[in-house]
C-alpha cells in the first residue's frame, strides 16, 4: 500500500474530489466570488443550458467543426497512407514530410496560420495566382470555422497517417498473393482486402478525431477569440469562460458534465472497437 499511497492521495485530491464537486456544483448556482449565497437549484442549470444562446451555438459550432474535420482529416490520412504504402522511392521522406505539422504545438500552428490567413497573407497571394479573389478566412463569420477546421486537419493528419501505415503493414501479404492468383484487379483487392482489414482501425481513427474535435479550444482562443460573432465559440471555450473568467462555477460544472457525457460515450465506443481489434489480432495468431 505504501507504493500505491502517493498516487492515491493525488488521485483523490485532483481527480476524485474534483469529479464529485463538479457533479454537485452542477446542481447549484455556486458563484466563486460570492460563495455564501449558494443554493441547490436541482436541474435548473441543465434546463437553462438548453435555452442558453451561447451554449447552443457553441454546441452547434462543435458539431459543425466535427462534420468538416472528421472526413477531411480521416480520409486525408487514409489516402496519404495508401499512396505512401504503394510508393517505392522516397518513402521515408514522405512519412516525415506529412508528419511535420504534428510536431508543432496548437499554439504555434495557430500563430503561424494567423499570418497565412491574413488578408494580404501568403494564402491569398497563392490563390490570387489562380485568379481567386482575396478571401477573409478567419475574419468572417461564415469562413472562420471552416478555415480553422482545414488548419486543424492539416496539423493532425500526419499522425493518423502513421497509424494507418502501421495498419496497412499488418495486413497479411498472403491475402494479396491469393487475390493475384485469381487475377483480381487493383480496385477489387482494395475493396475486398484492404478496406475490410482496415475497417476497425478506420472506426478507431475516426472516433479519435471526433473526440479531438469535441475538445477544440486553443485554435479559436488564439486566432479569433471565439468570434466573429461567436462563429468559432466551442463547448470547452464556454466552460473556460463561464468557470474561470466569470467564476460561475455552478453553470460551468453543468456544461462540464454535458461535455463529459458526450466525450465519455465516444471513448467507450472507441475502447470497445479497439478491444475487438485486439481480439481479432489475437485470434489470427492462434
Amino acid at each position: 500500500m505504501a507504493f500505491f499511497g502517493p498516487a492515491l492521495v493525488l488521485l483523490t485530491i485532483f481527480l476524485f474530489i474534483p469529479m464529485i464537486l463538479t457533479l454537485i456544483f452542477s446542481f447549484t448556482d455556486f458563484f466563486a466570488l460570492n460563495p455564501d449565497i449558494t443554493h441547490f437549484v436541482g436541474f435548473e442549470n441543465y434546463s437553462q443550458l438548453f435555452h442558453d444562446e451561447d451554449f447552443r451555438q457553441a454546441f452547434g459550432n462543435t458539431v459543425r467543426f466535427m462534420l468538416i474535420i472528421v472526413p477531411l482529416q480521416g480520409l486525408g490520412a487514409l489516402s496519404l497512407a495508401l499512396l505512401i504504402n504503394k510508393v517505392t522511392h522516397c518513402k521515408k521522406y514522405f512519412k516525415v514530410a506529412f508528419f511535420v505539422p504534428v510536431v508543432m504545438s496548437l499554439a504555434v500552428v495557430s500563430t503561424l496560420w494567423i499570418q497565412i490567413f491574413s488578408p494580404e497573407g501568403i494564402l491569398n497571394s497563392i490563390l490570387g495566382n489562380f485568379g481567386i479573389d482575396p478571401q477573409p478566412f478567419i475574419n468572417s463569420a461564415s469562413q472562420a470555422l471552416p478555415s480553422i477546421a482545414v488548419m486543424s486537419s492539416w496539423q493532425g493528419m500526419g499522425y493518423q497517417m502513421i497509424i494507418f501505415l502501421g495498419g496497412l503493414q499488418a495486413i497479411n501479404p498472403a491475402l494479396y498473393e491469393a487475390a493475384e492468383m485469381d487475377h483480381a484487379s487493383g480496385w477489387k483487392k482494395f475493396k475486398d482486402i484492404t478496406l475490410p482489414e482496415l475497417k476497425p482501425l478506420c472506426i478507431f481513427v475516426f472516433i479519435t478525431i471526433t473526440i479531438g474535435a469535441f475538445r477544440m479550444l486553443v485554435q479559436p482562443m488564439i486566432m479569433t477569440g471565439g468570434g466573429p460573432s461567436h462563429s468559432t465559440y466551442t463547448m470547452v471555450y464556454d466552460i473556460y469562460e463561464t468557470g474561470t473568467v466569470n467564476w460561475e462555477i455552478g453553470l460551468a460544472s453543468t456544461m462540464s458534465i454535458v461535455f463529459a457525457f458526450f466525450v465519455m460515450i465516444l471513448t467507450v465506443i472507441q475502447t470497445v472497437v479497439t478491444k475487438e481489434r485486439g481480439n481479432k489480432h489475437a485470434d489470427k495468431k492462434k
Binding site: P18, M19, T22, F25, R215, I249, S253, F259, V263, V268
Partner: peptide
C-alpha cells in the same frame, strides 16, 4: 476516459 477539461475549472478553483 474522463476528459481533463471537465475538472480543470475545479483545479483552477483549488
Amino acid at each position: 476516459i474522463v476528459p481533463m477539461e471537465t475538472i480543470i475549472t475545479i483545479h483552477f478553483l483549488f
